[in-house]
Design a protein around this nucleic acid. Sequence first.
DNA 1: TTGTACGCGTTATCAT
DNA 2: ATGATAACGCGTACAA
Lengths: 328, 328
Amino acid sequence: MATIQDVAKLAGLSRTTVSRVINRHPYVTDEKKRLVMNAMEELNYVPNSSARRLRKQQTETIAVYVPRITNPFFSQMVEVMGNYASERGYQLILCQTSYSRNQEINYLELLKTKQVDGLILTSIENEWSNIEPYMNYGPIMLCNEYNDRAQVPTVYLDQIEGGYIGTRHLIEQGHTRIAYCSGDNHASRVASDRYKGYKKALEEAGIVPSEEWILTNAYSINDGKRVFSDIAKMNERPTAVFTGSDEVAAGIWKEALNQKWNIPNDLAIIGFDDQPVADLIGLTTIRQPIEKMAQQAMGQMIDIIQHKLPSKKKEIKLDFELIKRRST
Amino acid sequence: MATIQDVAKLAGLSRTTVSRVINRHPYVTDEKKRLVMNAMEELNYVPNSSARRLRKQQTETIAVYVPRITNPFFSQMVEVMGNYASERGYQLILCQTSYSRNQEINYLELLKTKQVDGLILTSIENEWSNIEPYMNYGPIMLCNEYNDRAQVPTVYLDQIEGGYIGTRHLIEQGHTRIAYCSGDNHASRVASDRYKGYKKALEEAGIVPSEEWILTNAYSINDGKRVFSDIAKMNERPTAVFTGSDEVAAGIWKEALNQKWNIPNDLAIIGFDDQPVADLIGLTTIRQPIEKMAQQAMGQMIDIIQHKLPSKKKEIKLDFELIKRRST
DNA sequence: TTGTACGCGTTATCAT
DNA sequence: ATGATAACGCGTACAA
């Protein structure tokens, strides 16, 4: 591989001048510039990025944390972030935490070892106090997940609202027996706030939910199927169910149809996220503006990196949209 | 940030010794080793990866190309590759070509500028002759997509078989008017071979397809909806349709139901990939062993990088599985 | 406007 | 078993 030295020699100039041309510094004669360009062309020269990283102390790479890329909510997020980053000359390293605290911490070393310029967390597995120390090594920000203690830029939606809007919609449809089903991430404000919103809507309507209606550990389509079975077995069956994701809702829908239930008459279902599958099966759902979130977050991050801004709390709050379909 | 120099000073030893400890070289007294470890601990030292990259001429990073990460086929692929790579100490850089020739070429510079140790292509947008030159800069391999001219390791399925199995199944169900619908990537063997398989099955059965049954440019659910409208408008309507992806099939299914068609009586549909959505809507489909493909590919790549193997053609062929459901 | 010389943080080579 | 020194390839004060 040709180095900057080779180019300099061929052009009959110094490395400095070549470097200046590469980095578009002023004060280089057009003539010498041409000389350099020709030499680079001839040698098929490209600057070695490892050397550049070392010298400039930056990597032009950003890490994005998601639980699993196969979750459509997160893959949409990553799609937008990846394209946005690429347009601005940044690479994106994908970090799948697999819902594991250890895995999340492992990946945090990326920042410490200077493999990335910053990182964007879309979910949090550990207590914030375990993540905070890494802020010394580079900018961290949140997108989707949020946390009171985190003094970092945060792009988020108020999930109390999300839980409230969905539950309120079910109540307006005349339901009083409303089940709630979600994942089970203890460190997650998204999860706990959404549940708060559910409770708030019920309280306002003077409804006291039965404890057995609260179903946890539901992430996937298969979990949804299990949730349906659980519901079908209940003594005091709910007439509607609020779910934390369209996948889970789809699983419930699927198994309900298998058992010849009528949706929404036997059971109303509301999903979350407005994934493609929601349109497909006619699922009422709560849309989150993923594209906007992703762009805002990546935009912020690049801005912070390029201007070496200090990390501080800065909340960007976006809004939900209720999408009504046949399932309610 | 502490450097190796700082550690050396604190431990009262040379950089060399510290480096030896870090890289687990033999010939270091346990005593000095302990000294170094303590110093590293005290200074919260971590080796700078940029310096390491420069010195060792390798990045421990692998680029994975996909058209779009939101396509479930590719997100599954990336999920497995990402986890597999991470277990072995490699990072994964995500490159979305967005079905664009230019974007693909842009990303190829990653290899040239030594930002990654190798790259895995799951799709190809450009002619192979445009990609081949980059083989000088590091290992390239294929996973899913394949190409006769590419002298690189390739993990693939014989898509002639794929097209054949699906079409054959429809013929066995008694269909003779079978439409074919796919994307439209000219550089793709996956696409052209699958079509060959379709034709082969028809020919064997003595069927001559009408030209209007061949539908292209179908990638997404929405494309599927459009495809349905096209089919509904045909003079000589097909009774079955073979599709290149479950997403497209789902779109057809959705729009067919909207128009009160009965699936499979009015129109049989067969999908491809066996995505979660296929199970959901009862779609007959052809499963590809994504997990195996991804593991084989990533395993090969890491092997090649670590043993600096020369690039040569090595074909690993896996098999399809027909999953029968209600749509046929 | 151009060039010299130093340093970014590591690791490999060679000598002891 | 340990250390001095030279790369790896680049960017930038500083000098001219």
